[in-house]
Design a protein around this nucleic acid. Sequence first.
DNA 1: GTGGTCTAGACCACT
DNA 2: GTGGTCTAGACCACC
Lengths: 132, 132, 132, 132
Amino acid sequence: MFQIDVKNRKPIYEQIIDNFKRLILSNVLAKDERVPSVRDMAKTLAVNPNTIQKAYRELESQGYFYTVSGQGNFIAAEDARNHLAEIEKIHSHLEKMLLELLYLGETKDNIIQFAADFLHSWEGGEVRDTSN
Amino acid sequence: MFQIDVKNRKPIYEQIIDNFKRLILSNVLAKDERVPSVRDMAKTLAVNPNTIQKAYRELESQGYFYTVSGQGNFIAAEDARNHLAEIEKIHSHLEKMLLELLYLGETKDNIIQFAADFLHSWEGGEVRDTSN
Amino acid sequence: MFQIDVKNRKPIYEQIIDNFKRLILSNVLAKDERVPSVRDMAKTLAVNPNTIQKAYRELESQGYFYTVSGQGNFIAAEDARNHLAEIEKIHSHLEKMLLELLYLGETKDNIIQFAADFLHSWEGGEVRDTSN
Amino acid sequence: MFQIDVKNRKPIYEQIIDNFKRLILSNVLAKDERVPSVRDMAKTLAVNPNTIQKAYRELESQGYFYTVSGQGNFIAAEDARNHLAEIEKIHSHLEKMLLELLYLGETKDNIIQFAADFLHSWEGGEVRDTSN
DNA sequence: GTGGTCTAGACCACT
DNA sequence: GTGGTCTAGACCACC
């Protein structure tokens, strides 16, 4: 499904969250699909079940998962998530990145070219692992 | 000079580093200019001197500062720094942001438009505080 | 008859209990009426028979059902139940809700208005499903 | 400060959350006031630090606390919280309670009287412990 | 000193 | 079987 990098500064549970978000947002995991149980996931990723639990809980509270007691966790419908707030946040984040590039001497046209090229190279087909 | 945000999850020393980098890259701080002493900086930012110390040491090791013992810290010449590595890092960071926006349903054209608008609205005048 | 919401954090068996209580208290289910068998109920609600069993047993112990072995479960007479205790419990629960609204900045008059409006909009006709 | 009831069905960390919310909403704890450290709280309540941690984290993500790394947790400004959504939720909860009382035979006037009496008996002065 | 993460292992409620 | 809670104890980064 995906791998986690224990050496990474980013906490394991965040890596798990990011990976699931990616898989969900790119429709690799579809609505109402069941995700591996906490224990199974813990085994396959070789981490402690509590760590998986923490990640799953967070994903639930952010509207990506829903839990059916005694049955497991499932992918929530898209409208349970708050995309607008998320987009807003990323936009402001993006602005900072763009500014930094300017500071580092990149020209505006260069930057835009870079972004455009990258996006167009992305025919939306398969998913690439971009976790950290 | 700049402000730090203690409520922010980003460590204070990293915030200081980022702010100095920004001021240096945007030429607000010029080559060989003296930066405030650790103690002064600690007072004005109202943080622990150790924290300033850590930031300064990091900035020195990244080639932004040079230290003259007994005299203080100074802005290093541009060629002491490695912009390419920095740009590379931001580029990959940027790719992730762009991808997330795609996942969240933004169209490619929308995203490029956003970036272009932002950059062009920014006639490179003074520097705005973009820390986190 | 009613629906249960598997996504809800409230245990299914409690949802079933609440629904039955509601139907009984609102006289949709009359004294000595037979309730569906455990197996039937399990099928129509698409839940595990054990879950129905647990709910029925609880309802019996609270005086809402009585069991005739070999024949099924039936609605008990009203006097078998202890409304006062129930009302007491809800009253205290209500107090907490009211207090929270106060804390959240609602004025007393606003709250009372809300409650009064709601109650009066309710001409006691049929029963609406209010399960969580 | 407050007590927790280990025998209670409600999880300890939720009891802690509820208690803090109560103290904050009733202004016993003021903006920017420091709350006891995780370890201290763990000692005084005689529970595991992880449990406190969980509660504090939740309170932070709900906008009641903010964390200053290396310094502790503090009460957040009121506008960081999402009262409207909260009020909405409680309103719908309240409706269910009111309905249940109707079913149990209480008259509308009785119920409104009860609510009004309770609210007016509550001159907003001191705080009473309503935790479970 | 502070919060944050993680492990190992236990116990519980629900299905 | 499932998720959820809790403990005990360790280690880390930050201030």
